[in-house]
């Protein structure tokens, strides 16, 4: 399966990030923020949010991208763009699963330990994805 590592962005506003992802994950020229160093930060600068990525889009009954790789401590956000509800449900109960995400519903989860976190949609279990935390 093809996957790519997403760059880690400071939270600049959800729509801006969604725009980056829709545009194919291109380099950011944003004046404020810009890419956050993927190296662990004990104390994030006061002006920015903790390390975060996403959103992972839920489009046409699939997670986009299906696999993401992030550093320890990253908060991953999913957003449902479909007209039907979906969930982000841990396949092995290693993180707290989302409630039902209706259209435009969002769910965030911070991954504090390395590992591979498989998840799926409890409504449509043929939908699967992974978060790889390094």
């Amino acid at each position: 399966m093809r996957w790519r590592t997403l760059q880690i962005w400071a939270v600049l506003g959800a729509e801006l990030i969604a725009g980056f992802l829709a545009g194919g994950c291109r380099e950011s020229n944003a004046a404020a923020g810009g890419p956050v160093s993927p190296s662990p930060m004990a104390e994030p600068p006061a002006a920015t949010q903790p390390s975060a990525t996403g959103p992972v889009g839920i489009d046409n009954f699939s997670y986009n991208p299906e696999v993401i790789t992030v550093p320890v401590g990253t908060t991953v956000t999913w957003v449902n763009h479909d007209d039907v509800p979906h969930t982000v449900t841990s396949a092995d109960k290693r993180f707290v699963s989302s409630p039902a995400l209706d259209t435009d519903g969002r769910f965030s989860q911070t991954f504090t330990a390395p590992g591979t976190y498989a998840y799926y949609c409890a409504v449509h279990p043929h939908m699967t994805g992974k978060v790889i935390v390094k």
């Binding site: 799926y120 409890a122 279990p125």
Partner: peptide, 15 residues
């Protein structure tokens, strides 16, 4: 008549 439930405890990737 038999009513069956096939939506409980769905497994990832499965039917």
């Amino acid at each position: 008549f038999v009513g069956l439930v096939n939506v409980a405890d769905l497994k990832p990737g499965g039917l």
